[in-house]
Every structure is written in C-alpha cells, then in structure tokens.
Design a protein around this nucleic acid. Structure first.
Lengths: 254, 254
DNA sequence: CCCTCCCGTTTAAGGCATAAACTGAGGATC
DNA sequence: GATCCTCAGTTTATGCCTTAAACGGGAGGG
C-alpha cells in the first residue's frame, strides 16, 4: 500500500523488474549479510531507527523477506551483538592465542574490545544489556568464544579454575563499565535531533561544583582512564597467581 | 503504601461510573505518582511490558491521561531513571554528607547504589544506557545531585578538581560495570517465558573449558566481588591524594 | 445560572512486528 | 513438453503501540 511500485530505495532490487536481466546476484540474502547490514545500519542511523522494513529497504528488499533468515527482530538484535563481538576474531591485532603471556593477552583483548566499542558506539549498549547466550554465565557479553578463550589462557597461565572465573568476571565488568561510559557520551542519540528546550546550562544553577568542574568532566581523557584502570586491574589479577609476581610489562608507554 | 485504590481492575476506574460516589480522590494523577507507578510496574512486569496504556490501567486510568503530565514515553523513561537514582537520597543508610571522610562516603554511595540496582533489576539497564541529563557530563548516570555530592566531598577532602573528576569517572564506570553485570543474570527477561528451543548445554560442546568452569561461573559471588573491587578502587583513589595514605578502614568484615 | 478551565476519555492516524497467503522462476520427474 | 515442487521474496492482514486532536463532565467563580 505504501509503495505500490518503485520502492524508492536503490531502484532496482527484485521488485517490479520487468524482463529481469540476471544481475549475477538478484538479492542474495542470507543471515550473514543481513546481520552485517544491520550492524552498518545501526552505526549509520542509530539503534532506534532499525525496523524490519527499513533494514529490508537498506538491503533492497521488502522487509518481510528478512523473516526467512531471521526468526524475528529480537533474534536479529542478538545476532547483531554476536556479530559485533565476533569482530574480535577478525582483528589482526588481537590474536587471541596466548602468545606472550596472560598479561599481554588481556591487554590485547581489552584494547580489541575497546576498538569495537568505539567503532560501533550505537551497538554497544545492546552488547551491554543483552543477556548472555548461556543463561548461567552471568555477564551479558555474548559470544562465548572469547570467554572460552580467556578462560583457557588464564588456566594455562596457572590460575586456578576459581580464579580464572573470578578474573573473567572482574575483567568483563571492567570492560562493560568503562566502555559503556566512554561510548555513552559519544554517539548514542535518544532521538533524531534532540533539542533541549531548556538550556542545560541553566539547569546547572543548583550544582555549583559540577559547574566549576565542567572543563575537567568534559575533557576527553577516556583513553588514558582506560589504560590506567586496565593497569590497576591487571596488577590486581596478578595477585591471584600462586606466586603473585606480575610479569614485566614490555612497554610502559605512560 | 500509596495505594489509594487497587489498580489492575481495569473495569471501574473513572470510566462509565454510574452514580459514582466520589472517593475523596478520583484518580489524583500527578507526575510523581506516575513515575513511582512506572517504577513499580517495571519492577513487577519487566521493562518491555511497560506501555502507556498498561501503565494507565495500572493507575486506574485510561493511558492517554498520562500525556497530560508526561511529554511522552521516552521522557517517562528518563523520569523513571531519575526517580530510581534519587532513591539514594531517601536511603537512611546513605547520608550523603561527608560524615566520616571520603572513604566512608564512597562506600556508602557504592552500597546505596548497589542496593538500588538490586531492588530494581529491571530498571537498571535503563539507568546504564540512557544519556546523562547534561550532555557534556559523560557518564550516563542521571540525577546530577549525587554527582554534585560526590564532587563536593572529594574536593573538600583535598582532591584537586582534576582528580575529583577522575574519581567520579572511575567510580561511576566501576559501579556501572559491576552492577550491570550483577543485575543482568538476575531479573532481566528478554521475553515473557523464553523457552530455549535448543538445549543450551548442547550448545556448549565446543566450549570445554567454559563447561568445566560452569560451577565457578554460576556461583553467586557478586557481593564479594563487589566488595573486593570496591576496596581496590578505593586504594587506587587514595593514591591520588597529596599525601597518598589511605585512611584506615573501620571494619574489615571479611 | 452560566462560563470556563481542569482532568480524564474517545477517536483516530500512522508506524511497527509478524502471521499467513501469494507469485513467479528454475529445476526435477514423468 | 507438462505437472509439480521448492525457493526467495512480496502482498495482505491483524493487532499493538505511540501520540495528536477532539470531546465531556464536573467544580468553582462570577
């Protein structure tokens, strides 16, 4: 009804093509392609702009077509989370085998996940709030692959099972908190163009210290904060080892 | 406590009241009451169950009535976040003046916020993902009051402006991460009764270590984790002081 | 007694997810 | 070649959701 013909999207697609010449690929939907497109769509348009119809149009297709490959919107979102987190394994800088010891490993993991968070600021809140694939694994980071990877590295490094699990919890909550925080100010838009009807500065009359510290709060020191907190966490983790000495850092870049 | 009339009975309300004797208060809507009801509703029914109509019915009212007091659903959610966070100031255990030094203060703050998170597990993801009231304040914890309070205590304790801001960032990201994590496994339900069509255990074939550590991962040690991480953070914060010695803890209950 | 807000209700429009029926192009089988 | 099957996407339809706009009835003030 809304669009009897000429879906105004890319123009061709598969709809209403008369005497359709075979483009080598008509649409060629599949789950991978849909999830990738969804990630890109959210990156570009924001999470709340994602509807089945719009994602369909984005793929040159009619929206309902997606349901052949995806059980529903909710599942699609889960898939988006998993897709994004799985970028870790495509990152050449993050070889998730324990090359150079657990410290190096955890650092690569942390930085890799941070890169992902910054690359997809609109997606990350989704990562943070969606329950995990396995219900008994507490933290909401999906994609069990990297959890497995972390646990493997830690246990092989000499951590007890219990401590490895503790490290996992501490590490994921650290990442969750820091990255969510960092990403929050950046890209997450509640609405399309939220116009504050009341000047926000006016609102701060009652908060003099907040006002005074505004420059310190708005300065973007997220990267440095992240590094320092990561260092602190690693030191803390090192204490769990049987012989609690922390392997020397290679480069102390600070 | 504030239950003027039993809600959930959608039949009576103010609609079609025949010869309706006026209860002293017909409905008596106002913003505070709506927000309180919304929090309770989410606690009971989950976030995704909240619709304007249902919240209206919950209040014995027709749904559209809410729009007289609330600009819209999105704003209502913002209000819910603010309402919940403001519970801090009603908590008798959390006197947010600096009675006994900044360590004690930060501990009370952390525990108070944790209590809130655990009391409203369905609301907390909202707290974590919603952008702050003032756009230049990075973290997504709204309710500027407690930020102001924290900054005041820290600066009065001798922290520089810059360090006070750093403490705020570190502290809020810590709380965000830990509490989000803790709450995630608890109450957040994606659907009403999510039936895993595929046995989740079957899915774990490829993750042997995850499987082996399952007991360690599912054990609920959140409280202990929280305390330990909080201690570590406080130690780290103490180093920022001009003379970096940490005031003695009063009770080491562990 | 009438006017006029106040407060909540009705009505309605449009967007959304999603179930179910449909279409048209290959390809297989007879 | 004719029948039928299946795949891939489209159309149609339903019901819920937010939200704008018009509506009604009661209370208080003149």
């Amino acid at each position: 009804m809304t669009d009897p013909d000429t879906p105004q999207t890319r123009g061709d697609a598969a709809a209403a093509t008369p005497a359709g010449k075979t483009d080598t690929v008509r649409s060629g939907l599949d789950q991978r392609r849909i999830l990738g497109a969804a990630v890109r769509f959210i990156d570009e348009n924001g999470l709340r702009a994602l509807t089945m119809q719009r994602l369909g149009a984005y793929l040159g297709v009619e929206g309902m077509a997606l349901y052949r490959y995806v059980p529903g919107r909710e599942a699609l979102l889960d898939g988006v989370v998993e897709t994004v987190v799985d970028e870790l394994f495509g990152d050449p800088d993050v070889h998730l085998e324990a090359h150079a010891g657990w410290v190096d490993y955890l650092q690569r993991l942390a930085h890799g996940l941070r890169r992902i968070a910054l690359a997809h600021p609109e997606v990350f809140p989704l990562v943070a709030t969606r329950p995990p694939a396995a219900p008994w694994v507490r933290p909401p980071l999906r994609s069990l692959r990297w959890i497995e990877s972390l646990l493997e590295v830690m246990t092989e490094a000499g951590f007890s099972d219990e401590n490895a699990a503790a490290v996992y919890r501490a590490f994921s909550s650290f990442l969750l908190g820091h990255l969510l925080l960092e990403v929050a100010g950046h890209g997450v838009e509640t609405g399309p163009v939220e116009e504050p009807d009341v000047s926000p500065i006016e609102d701060l009359r009652n908060y003099p210290i907040l006002q005074r510290l505004e420059p310190h709060l708005s300065i973007d020191v997220a990267a440095q904060d992240f590094e320092e907190a990561l260092e602190a966490l690693l030191d803390r983790v090192a204490l769990l080892l049987p012989r609690p000495r922390r392997p020397r850092r290679l480069t102390e870049d600070k």
